[in-house]
Nucleic acid binder design. Sequence first.
RNA 1: GGGCCCAUAGUUCAGUUUGGAUAGAAUGGCUGCCUGCGGAGCAGUUGGUCGAGGGUUCAAGUCCCUCUGGGCCCA
Length: 636
Amino acid sequence: MSFEKFISEANEAVKFSLKKLEIKNETFNLTEPTRDEFGDLSCNVAFLLTKQLQKSPQMIASMLVEQYHQFRKTDSNSQSYISSVVAHDSGYINFQANLALIGEEVISHILKNDHLRMDIGKGKKVIIEHTSVNPNKSLHVGHLRNVAIGDTIYRILRDTNHDVRVLNYVDDSGLQVADILVGFLFLKFPVTPLNNNIKFDTYCGNEIYVKVNELYEKDPELVEKRKLLLKKLEQGDPEIISFASEITSKVLKDQLRTCWRMKARYDLLNFESHIIISKLWAKTFERLRNENIIIKETEGENAGCWVFGSDVEGTKIIVRSDGTATYIAKDIPYALLKVGTLEDQFKYLAFLKQWDNTTLWRSTTDDLNEANQLNFFPAEDSITVIDNRQTRLQRIIKEILNKFESNSNRYMHLAYGPVLLSNRTAKDLGMESEDQKSVQMSGRKGIFVDADFVLDTLYRKAKEETIKRNPEIAGKDLERTSEEIAISAMRYSLIKNDLEKELKFDMIDSLSLDGNSGPYLQYAYARCCRLIEKSNINSFSGDASILSDPIEYRLIKHLSKYAISIEDTIKNMEPKLIAVYAYELATMFNLFYEKLPILKERDTELSQARISLVEAIRKILKIFISFVGITPLERM
RNA sequence: GGGCCCAUAGUUCAGUUUGGAUAGAAUGGCUGCCUGCGGAGCAGUUGGUCGAGGGUUCAAGUCCCUCUGGGCCCA
């Protein structure tokens, strides 16, 4: 796209001038200046040469710019993306872009192409695993961050020609599931909740899980019972497995409803129990031993254990001396499956139809006729979205993968910081919290904000606003619109921040529909739609040459960088870059809308050009907010 | 004890990868702007010794060292 061409031309120009002055091998930066008056691109090369040339930066900049001007004189025929080059007093070389040319190219490119699909992936197969919540509770806002990040990455990859499969790993035989089984089997919680308004996942998480954990402290025998249950789960005791599966699949279905509400979707559910039953772990264990990746300690405190000697993390126990596998061990076969070191031997059954009409598949270990062999595994790249408390474990898994295939950079842990409750929200939930401190959520202790609760609250607020502004919207339309606004507020707030950092969740702040928020983007989009609708134009011209206002200039420049923004997002795996771009576009559009007449403009030609600009903005905005999982609304 | 991460406006955060021009948003407070294209908007104002100290550099929020405070993981 055009802005890249401008950058590369500026880059060539500097290199050319350096060569003319016989200056060698100087690296330099081209960056966007802090202020509009400095142009569109600045080069710092003059600063870097002061020592070598024994001249002031201003002097050097002038010399270089002089060379460029001489070159342009002899080569004035060809069209240039650079309209001017100035040696600034500060020592910077400032480039002004030829926005007439760029604008023309960009606007007509956006208007002409229906989909604007970029082919970044070239059809490359990518697996992304996200959500992966233990099936013993309902989702809280912390889990939603995982869902939002994972699904946003999925959408971006899918729309840039990657062949993406979305996986959701279900740990249906772990400690947390054992906890609620204790509740059903020993504390006699009824399988059908007495309060029939409560979702089953909420029932398990809020009532049983919390209660059981409370009782562990008073009743050591109960802990023993859990241990026993866990062992039966791991060994595949048919009766327990069957009961557990009944419970976990009920929880899972409720959890999925919340995820779908968030506009996430999946291709496949993998169950940990299947990895055990199918002997995938046994096979993995065998290979780890045969290839001497793990060794058996014969003495010391780890005597009898199978351990992995990590280069960075030290000795890590994989199998305990009593033969049971550690937590990390069970993750290894799944990772090996993703990258293709282990062959996929599962068969698959259609599990559920999703909101987007796609089928969600699940692995099965039963040899049924209707089971299919589908090629979910392996992939060229695999991305696992898990919070950064697991970084250490993930690093070890990656290290083990590298022992099998030394070139393996195909396994990526996409880490993000956990969600904490703000001081205010923690207090509202009745927790004691020191001032200025945020609070860790804990499903076990019942300290969390339920995902559906937040979404419901947001929904009510959005509905109120919608009724106030659009009395004509009612019924299903009103419900749908309010829900889309609620989801947009939630999803945007979960991805707009840096992944690495903890996210402080504040109930009151998160209810805001103003400012840097999802609904703000939707609002800008709806405004665009109304303008287009009212203009009664359905063919748009790409002629941007008469758009000369600085506000239009900034808009066109920003539009010309949309592809760069998408590339950067994928290259760095930073979904927030999408949010930043979209927010800036919406802000610029709102200013444009406020300050310049569009439909009201008397000059027909100018009016048409502005409407075309609006259409281009609308299309790009639609693409970007869709990446985030925000539904573009024509009215709200 | 070992390792990793964080600290920027009253609050929540960008900006640190690749050092560069007057450190930006949002929110809150105050103040303007709808007989005009939708006010979920726009503009103005208020608010910062970029945790502290030292170093490198023509130039440090950004790089290096030390310290303080907070968090996470491992033992």
